[in-house]
Design a protein around this nucleic acid. Structure first.
Lengths: 155, 155
DNA sequence: GCAATAAAGTATCAATTGAAACTATATTCC
DNA sequence: GGAATATAGTTTCAATTGATACTTTATTGC
């Protein structure tokens, strides 16, 4: 062991990534198994359920997903009849998305499950711990973003 | 908003995933830019630096990476002359991996950078917060794992 | 000791991902 | 109002990923 010893097990970015993957995998497999929804598809449904009439562009900014991912999930959900696309009177390039009757019904089923899954994973934390965890995620995310932006700056 | 309102922005698994990606991306791009190393490659180097003479199988269990990923990273690092593979006297199917002189030198450069990156991202948290964050990650990870294992059980 | 089975590592292939190119519509500027 | 540029969304393509099949060596049971 040198003085720059890294002790990979304790390297926090690494642990964060592993934990996040464990959580994502647990949730993704539940969505697929129970509702044949990918996580991207479910995210779109959840966002549209909160506010109807969004465009794909708005979904991209809200979910931080790639626009190709949003495009594909939108197409899949439309083909499956879970969302509807209506012309956007204000802009011919985009469409306004809303949940269909089926989509609304599905959302009614999936939303409680999503919350139940969250509860099973985070349920043993008490309120204070949850608040702190959220706060820490915020601060860590900001720092990481700043780092990326700095380094990305040309010159 | 319904009573099953999900408020995606506050859905913790989602926030965890976003934060983790921000951190991973910041670190991955730094490794690639400065040392032309993928994160998998860097992880192998870090683990081998901590203990020489491991087999790929042992690397798989320690890093939780897929064995295909480990195989590919091992081949790439060997071709680049950063690690060496010696016959395993105890088992002809596997080889013992160790850092080459070049690999050791590279590790000397990268390890401080890795720690500096971690410091830039997590540095504003104090000791108590770091300890708590680690503890929370542990507990969350265990709960998620348990959930996956339960559901994965046949029958 | 030799079949039958297991394990380490690699190769193959199909699915997922996102960058870049593309189409269609909007906006800007003269 | 028309050329030049920008933006919303889709398509294409190349890279990454991991499941599966495969090769080689170990182990097990007879």
């Amino acid at each position: 062991m040198t003085d720059t010893n890294l002790q990979l097990d304790n390297f926090l970015p690494y642990r964060l990534s592993i934990t996040s993957n464990l959580v994502s995998d647990a949730i993704a497999s539940a969505y697929v198994r129970l509702f044949a929804l990918s996580v991207s598809e479910w995210r779109l449904i959840a966002v549209i359920a909160e506010q109807n009439g969004l465009t794909q562009r708005e979904l991209v900014t809200r979910t931080l997903m790639d626009k190709v991912t949003v495009s594909r999930a939108t197409i899949a959900l439309t083909e499956r009849g879970l969302i509807e696309r209506k012309p956007n009177p204000g802009d011919g390039r985009s469409q306004l998305l809303s949940l269909s009757a089926d989509g609304t019904e599905l959302y009614g089923h999936v939303a409680p499950l999503a919350l139940a899954l969250e509860a099973q994973i985070f349920g043993e934390l008490d309120q204070k711990e949850l608040a702190l965890f959220n706060d820490l995620l915020d601060r860590i995310g900001s720092a990481a973003k700043q780092l990326t932006d700095e380094k990305g700056t040309p010159g």
